[in-house]
Amino acid sequence: MRHRSVADLMTPFVVSVQRGTPFKEIARLLKEFDISAVPVVDEAERPVGVVSEADLLRKPTSDSGTNTAAGLMTSPAITAQPHWSVVRAVRVMRKHQVKRLPVVDAAGRLIGILSRSDLLQLFLRRDHAIQEEILEDVLTRTLGLRPSALTVEVTDGLVTLSGTVSRHSLVPIVLRLCQSVDGVVDVVNRLDYEQDDMSVDTRTAH
């Protein structure tokens, strides 16, 4: 069961600028390529910041330094690596309250960009495809469970699990694996279990 990574979703073609790129050139690039921000890179193509539409809309001052990328950018650049899981990328975006992540290679060079619109691709999967992956990959192949013992319903990415598993300890495992499936928005747990193997037996505890 393979889940998509940052490398799978990122846009490999990136419009970037240098520290000295002037205000008007940045504005032209945003309009020409229909994008809302550009990474600012150094001489080695390593991101040092990002200039967004919001940055450009700030009123320029008489200081000429604010009319170049170096003076306009938000710095440092919050970056991602191509092998990251999508979940990790989303967490970083939320933590730093950014809408996009420049993606860098092992040497820190810019190789792509991941935006929130790229991430939305995950949630455009059909419910049937999500249900099929949970039944075949998660329950049958990964966990070795009988699909007939469980019911998987998917509505607009919301997964509802019902039925009975053999042990209580399997429930959090099933939930975690289902939540990691591409396109799943949330999981509703209605699972029951035959054996409670998560309760501590005080008679044998020391």
Rank of each mutant, 00 (worst) to 15 (best):
H3Y: 14
M10V: 00
P12T: 05
Q18C: 00
G20Q: 05
P22V: 03
F23Q: 10
R28F: 03
R28I: 01
L29H: 09
L30A: 14
F33K: 08
S36I: 05
V38G: 07
V41A: 10
D42M: 05
E43M: 05
E45A: 06
E45Q: 15
P47G: 12
V48L: 13
V48T: 12
V50G: 14
E53S: 13
E53R: 14
A54G: 14
R58N: 14
K59H: 09
P60R: 02
T61E: 11
S75V: 02
I78L: 09
H83L: 09
W84R: 09
S85C: 07
S85D: 06
R91M: 07
V92I: 10
M93D: 00
R94M: 12
K95G: 11
K99Y: 01
A107M: 02
A107C: 02
G112C: 11
I113K: 08
S115W: 04
S117W: 04
L119P: 00
L120G: 02
Q121V: 00
Q121M: 01
L122V: 08
R126M: 00
D127C: 03
A129S: 05
I130F: 08
I134M: 05
L135W: 00
E136A: 15
T140M: 07
R141H: 10
R146V: 08
P147Q: 07
S148T: 14
S148L: 11
S148C: 08
A149F: 12
T151I: 07
E153Q: 10
L161R: 07
G163Y: 14
G163H: 11
T164R: 15
R167W: 13
H168W: 01
P172V: 03
I173S: 11
I173C: 07
V174H: 07
L175A: 13
L175T: 08
R176N: 06
L177Y: 09
V185P: 06
D192G: 09
Q195V: 12
M198H: 00
S199W: 01
V200M: 07
H206C: 04
